[in-house]
């Protein structure tokens, strides 16, 4: 059997060595001095996360998702596809839902971020969290934090009059219907297929016309 420790050490060593090789190989002989990147740039930013002010020093490449999970240890926000297709990483930034995987953390200096941990706590749950429990709106639960953040934003978007692809009359205020909710939640994939119950939970919170 392969020794797990030996494997992980040699893999780490291999990664360090290959990173060094890549750095020397990708710097062309003649480039402007200001463009040569010997090592990753570290950037200081300040974020308000779930009402707390946080200072971070980050590799410029860090996504907002990785900053939340790896640096701030807020692991409620999940990494699914890491390419903007699944919605598991959905958080609210300045009150609007975005995919945190497709955003550089350093571009959010000064921003206000709310994650699923900031919506409610086990002792004091957000109405949307309670509704997800009541309606059994998940199986494995991995997509759930993203679904809940997205759902909270969807209700606010409809109340603000933001239209969707299925809104019949663009000039009228959109109704809260199951069709509207399904369309607006399409950026959150659930491979367990809990969709009907997810819509039930949102309907419970928002109140639907039909």
């Amino acid at each position: 059997m392969v020794n797990e420790d030996a494997l992980s050490i040699s893999r780490r060593g291999f990664l360090a060595a290959s990173a060094g090789t890549a750095a020397t190989m990708t710097i062309p002989a003649a480039v402007h001095a200001d463009e040569v990147q010997e090592k990753p740039q570290a950037t200081r930013i300040s974020l308000t996360v779930n009402t707390k002010r946080r200072q971070l020093e980050l590799d410029s490449r860090t996504s907002l998702l990785d900053a939340l999970r790896e640096n701030l240890h807020l692991t409620g926000t999940k990494k699914g596809c890491d390419q903007g297709q699944c919605g598991a990483c959905t958080v609210l930034v300045n009150g609007r839902r975005i995919n945190s995987c497709l955003s550089l953390a350093i571009m959010h200096d000064g921003d206000d971020v709310v994650t699923v941990e900031g919506l409610g706590t086990p002792d004091n749950m957000h109405p949307m969290q309670l509704a997800f429990v009541k309606h059994d709106s998940f199986q494995c639960g991995y997509c759930t934090p993203g679904q809940i953040c997205s759902a909270v934003a969807v209700v606010a978007e409809i109340k603000a009059g933001v239209p969707s692809h299925v809104t019949g009359d663009l000039n009228a205020h959109p109704d809260i219907t199951r069709a509207e909710l399904r369309e607006r939640m399409s950026g959150n994939i659930c491979r367990c297929g809990a969709y009907p119950n997810i819509i039930d939970a949102i309907v419970d919170v928002a109140g639907a016309r039909k």
């Binding site: 839902r97 995919n99 934003a153 239209p163 663009l170 939640m185 399409s186």
Partner: peptide, 26 residues
């Protein structure tokens, strides 16, 4: 969501709303 776009340039509002997801459009 802009009222002028919805009223006068409906094809643009419709095209935008048919693309990507709510998160990406934000």
């Amino acid at each position: 969501a802009d009222a002028r776009v919805r009223r006068d340039y409906g094809v643009l509002a419709r095209a935008l709303l048919s693309g990507a997801s709510g998160q990406l459009r934000n």
